[in-house]
Design a protein around this nucleic acid. Structure first.
Length: 264
DNA sequence: TCTTTATGGTGAG
DNA sequence: TCACCCTAAAGAT
């Protein structure tokens, strides 16, 4: 399931196995038939991940994919069998096939489509060109809860519900803390944690924050989807922050002194 | 064989 | 703030 790390993971894979090759494109499910026809038989020039978006470029045309909450890309080594009929898009080369399921967005457009999409996104922590200063400035002036701001893709792009819960846990910050009240050191710690967490997740293709090993799913996180904090055993809270339920250890992420009621 | 849930985002009210 | 969009897999029955 997709947060930004997974899009980078997929992009790397597609670079290895598809870029520079002639690609046969079809839409077994049918909803991307016209787009698939337009790129069928062409060479895939590059694959780029930005936040939670993917761009496959064929000459002057770009396929923009956003997996949403349900989407996935599945890779099948050659010889790939026939695609499942639900596949929105199959990209196939002599190396194998990438099948796309349940994306919230799968669209074809000119190269400028990519720039338009990216213009609405904040810096992606996994990209070398990420403008940390821009994020720092946004945090300094934003009065919302840090838990909410981390989900705002126009402030920074790629962090989702698991990463925000686990990153805030690791730096010991209450999600309800306004970003404007974080000091410089806290920001640096948070940013560094996010970068490290996402880098590892992009390598593994999975978010594992508790260990360096491929532990089973329930053990992979400290607080996300946990009943009790995996570090201290305190009962995990599930506050709604930024419109979505998240996870917090009340003992290790103590509330900062805030006079008024919290609002996200 | 059901029902539920899922790491996202948008547009309407 | 809510309804809704996409599909599969896990859990309940």
């Amino acid at each position: 399931m997709p947060e930004g790390h997974l899009l980078h993971h997929i992009a790397r894979r597609h670079r290895e196995v598809l870029v520079g090759r002639t690609v046969r494109a079809t839409s077994p499910q049918g909803r991307f038939s016209a787009g698939a026809a337009a790129i069928d038989g062409r060479v895939l020039d590059e694959v780029e991940a930005y936040g939670k978006r993917l761009f496959h470029r064929f000459g002057d045309d770009v396929v923009h994919v956003h997996l949403g909450r349900l989407g996935s890309f599945v890779w099948l080594d050659a010889p790939a069998g026939p695609p499942r009929p639900q596949a929105r898009l199959r990209l196939e080369a002599d190396t194998g096939a990438a099948d796309l399921f349940a994306p919230i967005v799968c669209e074809l457009g000119p190269a400028s489509l990519r720039d338009g999409v990216v213009a609405r996104l904040g810096p992606d922590p996994l990209r070398g060109d990420a403008d940390v200063d821009a994020v720092r400035r946004a945090f300094a002036t934003d009065g919302r809860a840090v838990g909410a701001v981390l989900l705002d893709q126009s402030v920074l792009s790629g962090v989702g519900n698991v990463l925000r819960s686990e990153a805030l846990f690791l730096v010991g910050i209450d999600p309800a803390t306004p970003t404007s009240s974080l000091d410089g050191r806290s920001f640096e710690q948070l940013w560094g944690t996010i970068v490290a967490m996402m880098s590892k997740a992009a390598d593994l293709g999975r978010i594992v924050t508790t260990s360096d090993e491929l532990v089973p799913e329930p053990e992979a996180r400290y607080v996300y989807k946990q009943q009790r904090c995996r570090r201290c055993g305190a009962e995990v809270e599930r506050p709604v922050v930024g419109g979505r339920e998240m996870y917090r250890c009340p003992r290790e992420q103590p509330a900062t002194r805030r006079p008024g009621a919290r609002k996200t």
